[in-house]
């Protein structure tokens, strides 16, 4: 008895392990940002006026550029996934290269925003929150930067097939998460 379910075929662990691992990894990152939004709400609830008077505000054009960069990056990952699944191997590496470049540009734009924030002396609780949240988001993006490089080299060696390309799938998911989180953060930091 009971042995009937025992023979249910299990998914290939080399493919499903990275998927589960990435979901867990992103959950941990997610809780980090939940704590940061909690901090934001806590500080915001305490302030009478938001942003506090005579606090310089961050110019929005950097944020719009960052949004464009991360959207391009997510699109590149989407393309890399589609192209792999369609079996168009030679087009995968360029898509990954684009993903890396736009991701790096995104990190660079975050760094630029932090530098600008220091120049215009964005201090106080408002400025601190701004820069801290940008910093942690830049850290999230920077953690995802080595992946396209490694995957690019593997793609050049022709290691991906329509059936086996778990690396592209999970790191694509990582960058979708990064992009979606940025949209939320953009709204919260610049418009709320």
């Amino acid at each position: 008895m009971g042995d009937v379910i025992a023979y249910r075929p299990k998914p290939d662990p080399s493919q499903s392990g990275p998927k589960v691992g990435m979901i867990l990894f992103l959950s941990a990152w997610g809780m980090l940002f939940v704590s940061l939004f909690f901090t934001w709400a806590f500080v915001r609830a305490q302030a009478d006026v938001w942003p506090p008077p005579d606090t310089p505000t961050m110019p929005r054009h950097i944020a719009w550029l960052a949004t464009a960069a991360v959207a391009l990056c997510a699109a590149a990952w989407f393309g890399a996934n589609r192209l792999t699944r369609a079996g168009r191997r030679q087009a995968v590496a360029p898509a990954l290269a684009l993903a890396f470049l736009s991701g790096a540009a995104f990190v660079g734009l975050h760094a630029w925003a932090i530098v600008v924030g220091r120049q215009i002396r964005m201090g106080g609780s408002y400025g601190s929150l701004f820069m801290t949240m940008l910093f942690f988001h830049a850290l999230l993006a920077a953690t995802g930067l080595p992946a396209p490089v490694v995957l690019f080299r593997r793609a050049l060696r022709g290691l991906y097939s329509p059936q086996r390309h778990i690396g592209i799938r999970v790191w694509g998911a990582y960058w979708y998460f990064t992009a979606a989180l940025w949209v939320v953060m953009f709204g919260v930091l610049y418009f709320l």
């Binding site: 959950s27 980090l32 939940v34 704590s35 940061l36 801290t132």
Partner: peptide, 17 residues
């Protein structure tokens, strides 16, 4: 561990800042 240690990370990170 995976869900709540990042919260300590934020507490320690903000204290560091």
């Amino acid at each position: 561990t995976a869900l709540f240690l990042p919260v300590l990370g934020v507490a320690a990170g903000l204290l560091f800042a």
